[in-house]
Simulated scan of single mutants.
Amino acid sequence: MEFGMKIRLLREEKHITVKHMAELVECTPSFISQIERGMANPSINTLKKISNALGVALVHFFDEEDPLTNNTEKYIVRKNKRKKFKSVMENTDIFLLSPSDIESKNIEMHLMVVEPGGKSDKLYTNPGEEVGYILKGKITFYLGNEKWELEEGDSIYFPGDIPHGWENTSDTEAVTLWAVTPAILRAGESLVLGETIYSASHKQ
């Protein structure tokens, strides 16, 4: 099921009007309507606000193939069964590499593919710790008031409460691998609102 349809069904189930949803998400009612009809694609930030308003985890809106039927494979994520979220606004695809239905897990892994020109909509914060590794290409990573140029083979660690974001200024896609603890897509990640990613000092 498309995530726009999921949003509409959950909204109607909770008796939330389009106007009230727009107020909760801080956008226009027409934008909510366009998202639900598949005519607009929200940023990861906007989808987080929607998931918070509807009381569900962000991962609920990730695409996935048919669910696993073999319980012995609950610890395995096959490459054709990864949950995926595509943020057209940020030109970024996020794949969940760890099982989403094990509530007791304390770590999560993501594969993030950022196309040329892709960048985070805002700076993020979360209550955990993150480690990232650049598998392919290069990416500009914003951390607090600084920014770093990371290339293939580079890695980075940081506490999640430091505002952070990314940007691909190159002409090729960047593929990055992330480990996060605790699992933020289950718990919900917070935002640093009103902060741009262009006020950082450059590091290399």
Results as ranks from 00 to 15, higher is better:
D63M: 14
F31K: 02
R82T: 14
G55N: 11
N106T: 00
I102A: 14
S51Q: 14
D101G: 04
N106P: 00
L97K: 04
I44W: 13
E65Y: 05
E103M: 08
D63Y: 05
L97H: 02
L54H: 12
K105S: 04
T69N: 11
G55H: 15
L97E: 03
M89G: 01
L54D: 12
T72E: 01
T69F: 03
E64F: 12
N71H: 01
A53D: 05
F31R: 03
N52F: 12
P99Q: 02
D93Y: 03
S87H: 13
N106R: 00
L58I: 08
S100Q: 09
E103Q: 11
K81R: 07
K83W: 09
T92W: 15
E103V: 02
F62Y: 14
H60T: 11
T72N: 01
D93G: 01
E65H: 10
Y75N: 04
I50W: 15
H60L: 13
K79A: 10
K81M: 05
N52E: 05
N91L: 07
S98P: 06
F62L: 09
F31W: 00
K74T: 03
T46P: 00
Q34I: 00
T46L: 15
L58R: 08
A53T: 04
D63H: 15
P67D: 13
N106G: 00
H60W: 10
F85D: 10
T46A: 08
K74H: 04
V88P: 13
T92N: 13
V88E: 14
K83G: 12
G38N: 01
R82L: 02
N80D: 09
V88T: 06
D63Q: 06
N80Y: 12
S87W: 08
E36S: 04
A40Q: 07
I50D: 06
I94A: 05
T72C: 07
S33W: 09
F31M: 00
A40I: 06
R78C: 03
L54P: 03
A40Y: 10
N70L: 13
K84L: 03
R82A: 11
E64P: 07
Y75F: 15
K49R: 01
N106S: 09
K49D: 12
D63F: 02
A57W: 14
E65T: 10
V56T: 15
S98H: 07
E103N: 02
I102C: 08
N41Y: 11
K81G: 03
N80W: 03
V59G: 10
E73K: 13
S87C: 09
K79Y: 06
R82E: 08
E73V: 03
I35Y: 04
K105P: 01
D93N: 09
H60V: 04
V59H: 15
L97M: 00
L97P: 06
E90I: 11
Q34K: 03
I94W: 06
S33L: 06
G55V: 15
S100G: 13
V77F: 12
N91Y: 06
S33N: 06
K48F: 14
